[in-house]
Structures are given as C-alpha cells and as structure tokens.
Measured scan of single mutants.
Amino acid sequence: MMITLRKLPLAVAVAAGVMSAQAMAVDFHGYARSGIGWTGSGGEQQCFQTTGAQSKYRLGNECETYAELKLGQEVWKEGDKSFYFDTNVAYSVAQQNDWEATDPAFREANVQGKNLIEWLPGSTIWAGKRFYQRHDVHMIDFYYWDISGPGAGLENIDVGFGKLSLAATRSSEAGGSSSFASNNIYDYTNETANDVFDVRLAQMEINPGGTLELGVDYGRANLRDNYRLVDGASKDGWLFTAEHTQSVLKGFNKFVVQYATDSMTSQGKGLSQGSGVAFDNEKFAYNINNNGHMLRILDHGAISMGDNWDMMYVGMYQDINWDNDNGTKWWTVGIRPMYKWTPIMSTVMEIGYDNVESQRTGDKNNQYKITLAQQWQAGDSIWSRPAIRVFATYAKWDEKWGYDYTGNADNNANFGKAVPADFNGGSFGRGDSDEWTFGAQMEIWW
C-alpha cells in the first residue's frame, strides 16, 4: 500500500505532463481588424464602393470589426500518417458601440487525414466545412476562386508533373424550389442545395520560377423529389480557371483567366447560384435568372523594390453578360506602395480606380480612391502583421446608374434591375460627389 501511495504523485505528475503537452499542441490562428473612423462631412466613417463592383480598395476603407478565430489540433499521428481537426468561428459588427450583439458564423469544422492511402503518398483526405484552397486579391479583399463550404475531397495527389485535387462542396439558396400545392400555385419556401464539383491540377512547373494551375468547377441545383425551380432559374454552370504564378522581385505575380457559364457567373468564384427565389410569386422572380457567361482577366501581385520599397498591385477586367441584360462590365486598377522608414514603421499609400458599365443601360459608374496611412507593423514586409495605422482617405465618384429596389417585386416591374440614375424622376446610384474620411485601425493575422 505504501508503495502504491508513493507512486501516486509520480503517476499524477506524468498524467499532468501528458495533458499539458496535449494542451500546448493546440494551434491558434486567425485574422482580425477593428478601429475607429470619422467622415469629413460629419458622423462615423463611411466606406466607398462603386455600385456594381464586387469589391473595394480596402486600405483606410473598412468600416467594421471583423474576426476569424481558428482552433486546430493534430489529434493523432503514427509515422507519417496523421489526423488534424480544424475549426473557425467568424463574426462581424459595425464597430459603433462597446456591446454589439452578433450571431457568430461557424465557418470551418473539418478533419484532414494525411498519408492515409498507401499508394497515394503525400495526399490528404478531408471532410467537413472548410476554407478550400481559396485564391484572392488581398488589397481589394476579392476572392476570385473560392468554393468554401461543407464538403469532402482528396487533395495533393502527386501525379509527377503536378498535384491533383478533387472536391465537392455545397452552397444552399433560400426559397430555391417549390412543391405543387393546388390550382397551379407554387410556394417557393424550400431551400435548394447547390452542389459544386471541383478538379484542380496545381504546382506544374512550366518555366523557371513559374507554376501553372488549372481548374474546372461544375455547379448544379440539386432538387428534392417532386420539387421544381422557378421558370428561367439557372440550373447549372461551369467555371474554368487558369492561373500562372511567377516568382519575381522577392515576391510574386499571378496572371489569371477565368470563364464561367450560367449558374457560375453571378459570384464568379466557383459557387453555383441562380435557383434562389426571393418572392413566393414566380411571376416576379426574374431577378434570379443569371443565365449567360462571364470572362475575367486578372493580374495581381506583391513585389519588393529595394530595401525600403514594397508594393502590391492589381489590374482586372470582368465581363458578365446575362441573357436578362442585367450584367456588368467591370474593370479596376490599383497600387499600394509602402516605404519603410524603419523595420517596424512605414508609410503606405493606396490608389485605386473602378469603372462599372451596366449591360442594360450602357451607362458607367466610376470612382477614384486614395489613402495615405502611417503604419507600425511587426516586420519590414508589406505582409507583416499585426499593424496599427492612422489613415486619411479621399474618394470621388460619378455614378450614372443604379439598381432599382424601390417598393417590392409585386408593385415594381423593374425591381432588382439596373436603371439610369434619374429613372422615373428618382435617384439611383450615388450620383456625382466626393468625400474624405480619417481614422485609426489595427489588422492582424497569425
């Protein structure tokens, strides 16, 4: 008995050590931004985005507190085989008060198993909700290839000249389909599951310092038995992507060409959309029709120009041509140079221009935006974070068209359509004006 009692403290210590080691193995990653800002004409900070554009130049032009908190852990490992559990909870508030209630979004919860298939060394099996191989332009917060959501897949299969990845994910639309009631009355209240099937071939070395990635995505509306879509709904579509990445000037340049059809055009990033119906009456549900095509040509990157200068840049042309004439032509160009006074202090400027032409009206909206920021960051790279910055932003815009969301679809035949700025004596778009804002912001990723 005495021997047992003497061994007990040692056993407890060993158990505590094991539990401590396991606790220390938890990975904590994430992203956050928050700050305070004012508008020159009075009131809180207002942000500037061109009507019809899918993004905006973000430096000194973000008006919310946003965070993603990721917890993950390698829960099992034997040799080169392992299982990893990953989670991500995100939230966004308007940064107007101390207490701002919000419903967090559970954006990731997945398990990734590496090297589980003997004859596919280096590959990963995964299932669950996941940010899946996302491609974006940081300076405009624009995701041009992103099929994230609940799904499953097999990735990084070594095929000799590259890595092959296969995945299936889902994005549902509210009110996407109906069941038959009586007297030809349909009640569009059932969600429609939109499935996306993704095939990618990446890391193909085609020139010194250059790699090529090719991808095909097929999206479709997956209806339940005895349900139907509204007439004209976009049932399926394709997205084709080619991306060349070149190492240059201690950074990279990415050149991207994408072509999409029908349900893959509205978001243009790989998620299927077009079966959703915002109104019970299918007579007024025309606005979900996105049959047509999209072409996107994009070049972006980040480079170092000597010891003291870094720069991000982007140039993009996007043409969404829809059968219902509600598409757009959008082109944007911008730069973000950074001058480093010390390894932790810099001055950053961002200059961006957007131009969006309405397919329906032929009119154009444009905006110039310039931001000057003094910044303190954890390192001497344009990617170094955390960063604390004080900024001043000036924007000038001239908008000739907007979307008509007055009333509702039952009493407005133009609901959701592009109209000229002065349509029917109204005021659509943001008109011709300018404004400036100033404030302070922190940004961090880890």
Rank of each mutant, 00 (worst) to 15 (best):
E205V: 10
A278E: 10
M19V: 01
F85I: 02
L214V: 08
S177A: 08
V75M: 11
W76L: 11
D86Y: 11
E435K: 14
G334C: 02
T328P: 09
Y339H: 02
L249M: 06
T261S: 09
Q203K: 13
G37D: 01
N412S: 01
Y66H: 09
S263P: 01
T361P: 12
E191K: 02
M338T: 05
M305I: 05
R430S: 12
T169N: 15
T65A: 01
T50P: 11
V257G: 02
T51S: 13
R33H: 02
S358F: 11
K70N: 09
L223S: 04
S304T: 11
E155K: 15
G315V: 08
G362C: 05
R220L: 10
W38G: 05
G407A: 15
V257L: 03
A16T: 02
N88D: 02
A395D: 07
D217N: 02
F240I: 07
A25P: 02
A21V: 05
R336G: 13
W238R: 02
G151C: 13
N414H: 10
F142L: 09
F428C: 11
M204T: 10
S381G: 12
Q375L: 15
W99R: 04
Q203H: 09
V419F: 13
D262A: 04
R134L: 06
F279L: 05
V257I: 04
K329M: 00
W126L: 11
K235N: 07
W119C: 13
I117F: 08
N281D: 06
G162A: 14
A167T: 02
E350K: 00
D404E: 06
H29L: 06
Y143C: 14
Q203L: 07
G30D: 00
I320N: 08
V14G: 04
A392V: 01
A94V: 01
S171A: 12
W376S: 15
N207D: 04
K340M: 00
V216F: 14
G176V: 04
S92Y: 11
I140N: 11
W126R: 09
V356F: 11
P343Q: 02
N194I: 12
C63S: 11
D280V: 02
T189A: 05
G215R: 11
W99L: 12
K340R: 03
D195Y: 13
S165Y: 13
E62Q: 15
R170C: 03
D98N: 03
Q359H: 06
D325A: 05
K417R: 07
S427I: 15
G251S: 03
D325G: 10
D262N: 06
G407V: 08
Q374H: 09
W145L: 12
Q96L: 15
T332I: 00
D299E: 03
N366Y: 10
S178C: 14
G30S: 01
I351S: 14
F423I: 01
G176C: 10
T347N: 05
I185F: 15
G43C: 05
Q95E: 06
I140F: 13
M316R: 03
V277F: 02
M294K: 00
N289K: 07
N321K: 06
F48Y: 04
T50I: 12
K129T: 09
M204I: 11
I388N: 01
T102S: 12
Q73H: 09
W330C: 07
D310Y: 02
N115T: 13
S304P: 05
S266P: 01
A32E: 06
H300P: 05
N226T: 15
E399K: 05
D434G: 13
F279S: 02
R6H: 03
G426S: 01
A181S: 13
R58L: 12
G79D: 04
L201V: 13
T124N: 09
F438I: 13
D236Y: 08
K114E: 13
Y339N: 10
T361A: 11
A16V: 07
G429V: 14
D158Y: 15
T437I: 12
F255V: 09
V199E: 09
Y84H: 13
E44D: 10
G175A: 12
L120M: 14
V390G: 09
D141A: 11
G431C: 12
G219D: 00
F240C: 12
S234L: 10
N194K: 10
Y57S: 15
K369R: 04
K81N: 09
A278V: 02
Y188N: 04
I117L: 13
G237C: 11
W341G: 06
E205K: 08
N183S: 04
G425D: 03
R224L: 06
M2K: 14
M24I: 05
T328I: 03
D86N: 06
W145R: 15
W330S: 08
A105S: 11
N88S: 07
K114I: 06
I36S: 06
E68D: 12
S275A: 04
D380A: 04
E62D: 07
D103V: 07
G301C: 06
L295M: 06
G402S: 00
D136E: 13
A260G: 04
P9H: 09
G219C: 02
D422E: 09
S148F: 12
Q441H: 14
Y31C: 09
V390I: 03
G379S: 09
S272A: 06
S346N: 03
G210V: 11
A67S: 11
I351L: 07
K269N: 11
G160D: 12
I335V: 05
Q95P: 11
N110Y: 05
I351N: 00
I140V: 06
G426V: 13
H138N: 13
M19K: 10
G160V: 14
G72V: 03
N365K: 13
T192P: 06
M264I: 03
G270W: 01
G122V: 13
P343R: 11
T241S: 13
N366I: 06
D158N: 03
K254R: 01
Y405N: 07
N226D: 00
G176A: 02
N287K: 10
Q22K: 05
E44V: 04
A67D: 14
A278P: 01
G153V: 14
G327A: 11
R58C: 03
C63R: 13
Y227C: 03
P208R: 06
M312L: 05
N97I: 07
D363E: 09
V348G: 11
A127T: 04
F106S: 05
Q54K: 13
F83L: 03
T189N: 13
A94E: 13
G72A: 15
S381N: 02
A302E: 11
F83I: 04
G113D: 02
Q273R: 12
Q258H: 01
F106I: 09
K254M: 00
I351F: 10
W322L: 10
K396M: 01
S182C: 01
N110T: 13
A285S: 12
V12L: 03
W341C: 06
R134S: 14
Y394S: 09
E443A: 02
V257A: 01
R385C: 01
E64K: 15
M19R: 01
E191A: 06
F106V: 15
A167S: 14
R6P: 03
G72D: 10
G17D: 02
R385L: 10
R224C: 00
A101D: 14
S427N: 09
R200C: 01
G17S: 11
V26F: 07
I117N: 12
L8H: 12
G306D: 00
S346G: 00
A418S: 14
Q246K: 05
D136Y: 07
A67T: 07
M139K: 05
D434E: 15
V159G: 15
A32S: 07
E64G: 14
N290D: 02
K163T: 15
Q377E: 13
N408T: 09
A168T: 04
N115D: 11
N207I: 08
A302V: 02
A90T: 03
G426C: 13
M24L: 03
G429D: 08
S34A: 14
T124P: 06
Q377K: 13
G402D: 00
R130H: 02
I3V: 10
F131V: 11
N424I: 12
G237V: 09
N324S: 02
A387S: 12
A233E: 14
G268V: 07
T169P: 10
L8I: 12
F415I: 07
Q374R: 00
S178Y: 10
Y368F: 11
Q374P: 11
Y188F: 14
V196A: 11
H244Y: 05
G431S: 13
G334A: 03
A168V: 04
G276S: 02
K81E: 02
G352S: 10
A242V: 02
A395V: 01
F415L: 07
G362S: 01
L298F: 01
D323Y: 08
K235Q: 15
D323N: 01
R228S: 10
T102I: 09
